[in-house]
Design a protein around this nucleic acid. Structure first.
Length: 575
RNA sequence: UGGGACGUAGGCAAGCGGUAAGCCUCCGGAUUUUGGUUCCGGCAUGCGCAGGUUCGAAUCCUGCCGUCCCAGCCA
């Protein structure tokens, strides 16, 4: 009996399928897995998969395994395993005691391969790489540019006896043949319209030390063979993966059926694409190798480690993951949605401080000489429990260069000669003049007078003061370095490039701006590395590990929404 | 007809035959000691296109069109 106002809970197509499987008894419980290959660091695209894998399991009272899909000794490394574990944990997903490695299944996988040989469903092939390709056939465009796929041809070694195949396969394992000399292939159908079904390679010979099994093995299972069986070994009910594996599903099912193992079910969903971002390990690795960024954890990288260093919160990231949905449509998510989620989370939780990025000295001419006051400031207006702190104030302050104009543009209500602004938590001041370098034209000093009756910022006569700006007391200012980030790629789709160009040509030349002379209020000294705070009116900033006791470094996580920038741009457009 | 999949607003995405949810962006306006936050309001006579079935179609049928994936002994 459902109440009339009770909302039916929305299920995405995967959860719908899982619910159906439970209802029909196809599966009694839910078990999923997140299977990264340890050959690179996790990025936001992996986070989506993690969110789906762990989320689906959790919603149905099941568990999700973390499995290293390490069947290729050439690219994998323990460094990546550790990075992956750290990032998964940081995002808030818990695999408990279920960390598995495909490389732990090598022996059982070998046995299952032998089983297929015995059933006459696998054979040792002597064809080399080129020949296999040639025999398999390929998609070809005809004169009308319509592709068709003529049947392939059987390998001459396809009909070896079971005994010979068993013997040869054992000798492959024993290292009797050089790399590439033989493969083990599934005997399916060389005329199958799906090229993947044309006797796919199950094992190759590769004398490459594996980061976990060393030189124990010189034959390694291929993904298409290892993956379904690894799922089965772990009792995975729902093997959730990205759309490009859709075409692999018949093969996935073929191996499961013919090795007679647990009937895991593969379901595919669209991977994440993010505007202004590349999300492929291959391209990210290239950015790292060619030093276009400082490393996998460069704050501009879409990696989990990069986002962490940038100051993104796991909660904000997970909120984003929940909002983008799960579907089968190839899509491109606007990165502004991610930024919105980060801002929303940080707004609720980040402590506020005052800091000045590009300082200009402001002198209050009628301030009593030598006087200093400590004013009350709210730590987080969204959270009264965060309390207040004291900030020093005197007649010599720093304000941001952008908060002063010699001649104000329309709608500008910050500092300019004759105008009145409020110094946040301080006093209302009136700009009386300024000095500038005759050579460069740069403003060197702003002069003001203050109204002593406005301490704290409230004017007793209730007069309107439209602008409120942030500041830092010069005598107590602590210097820091501010690293300001912009998109790594200006183009919305970095991979779309004209002939002869690569995505590297789309790299922005202003993705990083450093302010070396930034100043902050004293309390900023107490902030821990890795903590994200708000510098009022400027944005959220995260203290970077590059910080030293002498000099703090802060990464700008994301700016605040900037309505003024839009207004200014609009007027500039009109001018 | 090579095979597989997908097309709902600028970007995501619900909708499952009963008359187009929600979120982001964008645009207004109110409140505000952050041009932040919050709050109100606006933004698809139309669901790739064309037919058909039906009292009724984004949903069912037919035919087109478009996009993506597949030719590793990578995953």
């Amino acid at each position: 009996m459902s109440e009339p106002n009770e909302k039916t809970e929305y299920l995405d197509f995967i959860r719908e399928a899982v619910a159906e499987d439970l209802r029909t008894g196809r599966f009694k419980e839910v078990r999923t897995r997140f299977p990264p290959e340890p050959n690179g660091w996790l990025h936001i695209g992996h986070a989506k998969a993690l969110f789906v894998d762990f989320g689906v399991a959790q919603d149905f009272g099941g568990k999700c395994n973390l499995r290293m899909d390490d069947t290729n000794p050439e690219k994998e490394d323990m460094e990546y395993v550790e990075a992956i574990k750290r990032d998964v944990k940081w995002l808030g997903f818990d695999w408990e005691d279920r960390l598995f490695f495909a490389s732990d299944y090598y022996e059982i996988l070998y046995e299952l391969a032998c089983k297929l040989i015995r059933k006459g469903l696998a054979y040792v092939d002597d064809l080399d790489e080129e020949q296999i390709k040639e025999y398999r056939g390929t998609n070809v465009p005809d004169k009308n540019n319509i592709t068709f796929t003529p049947p392939g041809r059987n390998s001459p070694w396809r009909d070896r006896s079971v005994e010979e195949n068993l013997d040869l396969f054992a000798r492959m394992r024993a290292g009797e043949f050089p790399d590439g000399a033989k493969t083990l292939r599934a005997k399916i159908d060389m005329a199958h319209p799906n090229l993947l079904m044309r006797d796919p390679v199950m094992y190759r010979i590769r004398r490459e030390p594996h980061y976990r099994t060393g030189i124990t093995w010189c034959i390694y299972p291929m993904y298409d063979f290892a993956h379904p069986l690894s799922d089965a070994i772990e009792g995975v009910t729902h093997s959730l993966c990205s759309l490009e594996y859709e075409i692999h599903r018949p093969l996935y099912e073929w191996f499961i059926k013919n090795t007679e193992v647990f009937p895991s079910r593969q379901i595919e969903f669209a991977r994440l694409n993010l505007s202004h971002t590349v999300l492929s390990k291959r391209w990210l690795l290239q950015l790292v190798r060619e030093k276009k960024v400082s490393g996998w954890d460069d704050p501009r990288m879409p990696t989990i480690a990069g986002m962490r260093r940038r100051g993104y919160s796991p909660e904000g990231i997970r909120d984003f993951l929940g909002r983008i949905g799960i579907a089968k449509t190839d899509s491109m998510v606007d990165i502004q949605l991610l930024e919105h989620c980060i801002r929303e989370d940080l707004n609720a939780r980040a402590r506020r401080y005052m800091a000045v990025l590009d300082p200009v000295k402001l002198v209050i001419e009628n301030w009593p000489k030598g006087q200093e006051e400590w004013l009350d400031a709210v730590n987080n207006p969204e959270d009264p429990e965060a309390g207040t702190r004291k900030i020093p104030f005197s007649g010599t302050l720093y304000v941001d260069r952008d908060d002063f104009r010699e001649t104000p543009p329309p709608k500008y209500y910050r500092l300019y000669p004759g105008n009145q602004v409020r110094l946040r938590y301080g006093y209302v001041v009136t700009c009386t003049g300024y000095e500038k370098d005759p050579e460069s034209g740069e403003i060197t000093l702003i002069r003001c007078t203050y109204d002593p009756t406005t301490r704290g910022g409230d004017a007793p006569d209730n007069r309107k003061v439209k602008g409120t700006i942030h500041w830092v007391c010069a005598d107590h200012a602590i210097p820091f370095e501010a690293r300001l980030y912009d998109y790594l790629f200006e183009a919305e789709r970095p991979m779309e490039v004209p002939e002869g160009k690569t995505f590297l040509d789309n790299l922005s030349d202003h993705s990083l701006t450093i302010q070396y002379n930034a100043k902050a209020e004293p309390a900023v000294a107490e902030i821990d590395v890795g903590t994200t705070v708000q510098f009022e009116r400027l944005g959220y900033f995260c203290k970077d590990p590059d910080s030293t006791p002498q000099r703090a470094v802060f990464n700008r996580t994301v700016t605040l929404k900037d309505t003024w920038a839009k207004i200014e741009k609009r007027f500039q457009g009109q001018a």
